[in-house]
Amino acid sequence: MSTLLTCGTAVSAQEPAFERVASGLQAETLRGGLGAAPGNSSRVIVKSAIELIKQFEGWFASPYNDPVGYCTIGYGHLVALKLCSDSDLSGFDIPLTADAGQAILVDDTGLARHAVERFVSVDLTDAQFGALSSFVFNVGQGNFSSSTLLKRVNASDFDGAAAQFHRWTMSRGVRLKGLVIRRSCEAALFSGRDLLNAQGVFDQNRCTLLGAPGPVDDPIDIIAGE
C-alpha cells in the first residue's frame, strides 16, 4: 500500500501497477488550449473503452496530487493544474462513490469523443471510435490532430493506424510500461478484439496477447507530440 498526499489528509490507496500519466486532453482544457469551443459528443463510448480508461487511470475516491503535482480525483479526473491544497474541491462529494466517479469519467470523455468526430473523416466502428477516444483522452486532441495515426485512419489504412498506437509510449523522455500496455490495449480494441472476459470485466492480459507490438521505430513522447 502507498500513502497519497491529499488536500490536508493522508489516504491509503492501492499501489499503482504502473506509472500514472495525467490526461493530456484534460490538461489542454484546463489550460484553455482547445481553440474554438470544442463542444461535446453524443456518440456513446463502448464499455470496453470505458473499462480500458478506468484500468489505466486508476481509482481514488479522495483527491490526491499526481506525480507532477496536479490535483486529481476519481478515475484520473484533473481538478486543477495545481496542488489539492490550493484547489477548490467544493464541487465534489468526498469520498466519491464508484457511480459518481464513472459519471465524471464518461463526461470527461465527451471532449475526446468530439475530437475524434471532428478530425476523423471516415466511418468508424464502435470499437475503433472507442479506442481513438481513449487515445485522445490520454494524449490530447492537439497531438491527435497532427498525428500519423490520424492520417492512416483518414486514409482507411486501419492496419497501419493500429500499428501507430505503439509509437506513443514515452512521457518526458522516458518510456513507460503503463503507456506500452495501454497502447497495446487501444490497438487491440481498434482492431476489433474483445477486451472483456466472460464476466464482462476488462482483462489486461488480452491486450498483450491481442495487441502486442513488434519492433517500434521512432517512439513519440505524449508531452512533446509527433
Rank of each mutant, 00 (worst) to 15 (best):
residue 125 T to C: 03
residue 123 D to E: 14
residue 127 A to K: 12
residue 117 E to A: 01
residue 123 D to G: 10
residue 142 G to Y: 13
residue 149 L to E: 08
residue 156 S to E: 14
residue 117 E to W: 01
residue 130 G to P: 07
residue 131 A to N: 12
residue 163 A to T: 13
residue 167 R to V: 06
residue 167 R to I: 06
residue 155 A to N: 13
residue 131 A to Q: 12
residue 152 R to G: 00
residue 136 V to Y: 08
residue 115 A to Q: 13
residue 172 R to P: 01
residue 127 A to I: 11
residue 146 S to D: 10
residue 167 R to S: 05
residue 151 K to P: 01
residue 112 A to C: 07
residue 170 M to F: 02
residue 114 H to N: 12
residue 143 N to S: 04
residue 161 A to F: 12
residue 113 R to Q: 13
residue 162 A to L: 05
residue 157 D to R: 00
residue 109 T to I: 09
residue 117 E to V: 07
residue 107 D to N: 11
residue 160 G to T: 05
residue 151 K to V: 05
residue 109 T to F: 02
residue 111 L to C: 04
residue 159 D to I: 12
residue 143 N to R: 14
residue 104 I to L: 10
residue 149 L to F: 08
residue 155 A to D: 14
residue 166 H to K: 10
residue 165 F to I: 15
residue 135 F to K: 07
residue 126 D to A: 11
residue 111 L to H: 10
residue 135 F to Y: 05
residue 110 G to M: 09
residue 129 F to E: 08
residue 107 D to L: 04
residue 151 K to A: 08
residue 161 A to C: 06
residue 115 A to E: 12
residue 159 D to C: 01
residue 164 Q to G: 00
residue 125 T to R: 05
residue 141 Q to V: 01
residue 149 L to A: 03
residue 111 L to A: 14
residue 108 D to R: 02
residue 175 R to Q: 09
residue 114 H to R: 15
residue 118 R to T: 15
residue 147 S to Q: 07
residue 171 S to Q: 11
residue 150 L to G: 07
residue 128 Q to N: 10
residue 167 R to C: 03
residue 134 S to D: 13
